[in-house]
């Protein structure tokens, strides 16, 4: 089944990608215009051209479908050795790969070349919540898993769901299938549900809560980075509260598998140059992203680790079987 299926899928995709000339660098955004992947492609493409890393403007192609699965199978099946192609990716890409949501495709069918920014994960409660710290929230769940329900912007099993589970695992709580979670339409909606008192905590990304911090409606219990985030120094990290968890929604790229190692290193260098540029620093600041640069083999190794961890966690809660 899957072979014909993938052939059909990828052939359907050809329409969208044939417009490019053979030599310009192309960036596929596996979603419609306006989303995070689209932003990554457009910004990175623009900066690569502006700082002279590529000779011609980068061609951005939107190839939406199956939550990024259509673009993935197109790259794997049709353009597996295209040296001038990069594809926008994020934590959602690796989460879905780990959960086999791309119809049998696996993370090792492409090469993850670099991340150049990240949206840090956060856990938030309403301002009138009894929980003052991450530790208190975790203790309450340990005592009675039913006492706290989380709301998050991703579906069950998605990245927002996995964040609190990682924290609880790190705290030595293993009964994670008892943890309550509802997935709603985006982080702002999750905050609405939490401030409204329907759920007790919200799990999401930093960029999703920035607008709510000045209102005094919410209290940020923890940010899931190694260091406190610049500009938000009063928000404690999970790590300093004794939970060794790093969960960031990174923004980066993957490239086809069969390109030469030299070309792979070139891509890594180009992304490093983008990450170092003043333009990208500004774009990150404007969009609530924190610095998170990891390129080349180092990034590939990190992704492999994340995928393995996500897969284990997903298997435990039964979203893959």
């Amino acid at each position: 089944m899957s072979k014909t299926l993938l052939r059909a899928l990828s052939s359907a995709a050809v329409l969208a990608v044939t417009a490019t000339s053979a030599f310009a660098v192309e960036c596929i955004a596996p979603a419609n215009p306006g989303g995070g992947w689209d932003f990554t492609c457009r910004q990175v493409g623009k900066i690569m051209y502006d700082i002279g890393q590529v000779a011609d403007p980068v061609q951005v192609t939107n190839l939406a479908g199956a939550g990024g699965g259509l673009a993935f199978s197109t790259v794997v099946n049709e353009r597996n050795s295209d040296p001038d192609l990069m594809v926008a990716a994020s934590s959602a890409t690796t989460t879905r790969l780990a959960q086999n949501a791309f119809g049998g495709a696996t993370a090792d069918q492409v090469r993850f070349v670099g991340a150049i920014g990240a949206d840090p994960g956060v856990i938030v409660v309403a301002a009138d919540s009894p929980y003052q710290s991450l530790g208190e929230l975790v203790d309450a769940i340990k005592a009675d898993p039913g006492s706290v329900a989380f709301a998050g912007g991703s579906a069950v099993g998605g990245f927002d769901h996995l964040k609190p589970l990682q924290v609880l695992k790190a705290a030595g709580f293993d009964d994670i299938t008892k943890v309550r979670y509802i997935g709603v339409d985006g982080g702002a909606d999750a905050i609405t549900q939490t401030v409204g008192g329907f759920t007790q905590a919200m799990t999401g990304d930093m960029s999703e809560i920035v607008g709510f911090i000045p209102t005094g409606d919410i209290r940020v219990l923890a940010v899931m980075t190694d260091e406190r985030v610049p500009g938000f120094e009063d928000i404690p990290t999970a790590k300093e509260q004794g939970f060794d968890v790093r969960a960031v929604n990174w923004r980066g790229m993957y490239v086809p598998k069969d390109i030469s190692d030299a070309r792979f290193q070139e891509w890594a260098g180009m992304l490093q140059a983008v990450a170092d540029s003043a333009e990208w620093q500004q774009a990150m600041a404007d969009n609530g992203l924190a610095p998170f640069t990891l390129v080349g083999d180092e990034f590939q190794a990190w992704v492999d680790g994340v995928v393995a961890e996500t897969e284990a966690l997903s298997r435990e809660i039964g979203v893959i079987q």
Partner: peptide, 17 residues
Amino acid sequence: PNSGLPRMTGGNLHLYD
């Protein structure tokens, strides 16, 4: 959306969305 698993798709990837 509540389990992340496909339903009633007959395994057809086109129907996952």
